[in-house]
Design a protein around this nucleic acid. Structure first.
Lengths: 186, 186
DNA sequence: TGTATTTTTTACCATAGGGTAAATTTATTC
DNA sequence: GAATAAATTTACCCTATGGTAAAAAATACA
C-alpha cells in the first residue's frame, strides 16, 4: 500500500521455496502483536502473505510515529538494519491477523543466484519505493494537513477501517487532536 | 549528497563506455543553466561527473520547491518519467558549471547485460535512496525546522556555499523568511 | 447488560511558521 | 565605482497546528 508491491506473486514464491529448497520461514501473528521491536536486529524481509501491518518508531518524547502501512503482497523490512547492519529503530505491528514469509539476506542471495532476473525485480521494487517516498515528501511540502488527509481517504479508503485515527494522524505528520479538528471542519 | 552515490567510479564508467561501445553522451552545462525542464521527457540517468545541481518543482502557486541537491558522482533522474513514462514535473538546474554523462534506459540495459553484477549495484543505489528519503520523512515528522536546519549545516556544510538560502529553505520545507528568522535567533 | 478501558473529540491557550511588503545587504553589470 | 538587480533580512499581523486536560463516544470485557 505505502511501500511498494512485490512484482512476484505468492504462488511463485512458494513454488521457488520448494524448488530451490530455500527453507523460507512462515510466521503467523495475531492482531495487536508487535512482531519486531526497536533494538532487535531486522535481518529479514517480511513478505506479507495476508493481513495488514503498521511500521512505527518512537520520537524523543516517546510518541509513536507511524512510518508506513503495509498490505498483503508487499514487503516490509528495516532498511537500516537489513542493508546496513545499523541498529533497528522500527516496530512492526500487526493491525489484523497476519501471515508472513520471512526471507533472510542469505536466502535472498540464493534466490537471486537461481533467478538472476529477480535482481531486476528487486531493483524496481526499490525504485518504486523511492518514488512513493519522494511523492510523500512533495505532498508534505505542498499540501496542507487537510489536503493530505483528503487525499489519503481518496487513495486508501480501506485504511480507515483498519488503522486507528491516532496511527493515521502521525502518518500524516500531525497530532490526533489536529486530525480530529480537521475532520470536524469538513 | 542527498540522493545516493553510485558505487561505480567515473573511470570504470568511462572504460565501459569505450569497451562496450555504449556511446554515452557527454553534456556540459554552465552555472545557472536549467538542463531539464518540467514537461520534457526525462529518459536518461544524469550521472554527475563534476559540479553541483539542484532538482526542483513548482507548487500550485508557482513557487520553486527544492526537492534535492546532487553532488558529483551521484545520479539524478526524474523517476516518474524515467521509469514510468509519466509526465516529468522536475527541473534540473546547475548551481555551478557541471559535467554530465547521460545514460539512456537502453544503454543501461546494455550495460547490465554485459555486467549483470551492476544490476545489484543499482538495486543498492535505489535502496539507499529510499533510505535517505525515509530518513528525511522521519526528520520532518520529529524535528522542528530549526533542528533540521542545524542538522543540514552539520551534515552538509558545503551546501551553504553553493546554494541560495531560498533553495535551502524550500528544501527544509519552510519559507525563506522563516529560515531567515531561524538564523537570526541562533 | 453494566463496567472498565480505549479511542476520539472538544476546549482552551501557546507558538511555530506563513503571507505581504518594505528595508537592507550583497552581487552583478556597464 | 555608480547603477541596477538579486538575495536576504526585518517587521507586521495571521493562521494552522501543538500541548494539556477533560469530556464524550466507542469498544471490549465480564
Amino acid at each position: 500500500m505505502f511501500s511498494s508491491k512485490l512484482y512476484i506473486d505468492i504462488n511463485k514464491l512458494i513454488k521457488w521455496n520448494i524448488e530451490f529448497d530455500l527453507k523460507l520461514t512462515n510466521k503467523s501473528v495475531k492482531k495487536g502483536d508487535i512482531f519486531l521491536k526497536a533494538g532487535q536486529r531486522c535481518d529479514h524481509l517480511y513478505y506479507i502473505l495476508n493481513g495488514f501491518t503498521r511500521v512505527y518508531y518512537l520520537d524523543l518524547a516517546g510518541n509513536e510515529i507511524t512510518h508506513w502501512f503495509c498490505t498483503k503482497e508487499s514487503i516490509i523490512t528495516s532498511p537500516f538494519s537489513f542493508l546496513k547492519q545499523e541498529k533497528n529503530i522500527l516496530f512492526f505491528e500487526a493491525l489484523e491477523d497476519t501471515e508472513l514469509l520471512l526471507i533472510s539476506s542469505a536466502q535472498l542471495e540464493k534466490l537471486i543466484q537461481y533467478l538472476p532476473k529477480l535482481s531486476e525485480a528487486f531493483r524496481h521494487i526499490n525504485a518504486e519505493f523511492a518514488m512513493v517516498l519522494s511523492r510523500r515528501i512533495m505532498s508534505i511540502h505542498t499540501e496542507t494537513a487537510e489536503e493530505r488527509y483528503l487525499r489519503l481517504i481518496k487513495e486508501h479508503p480501506l485504511l480507515f477501517q483498519k488503522a486507528k485515527l491516532s496511527h493515521i494522524a502521525s502518518f500524516l505528520g500531525i497530532t490526533q487532536q489536529s486530525l480530529s479538528r480537521i475532520r470536524k471542519n469538513l
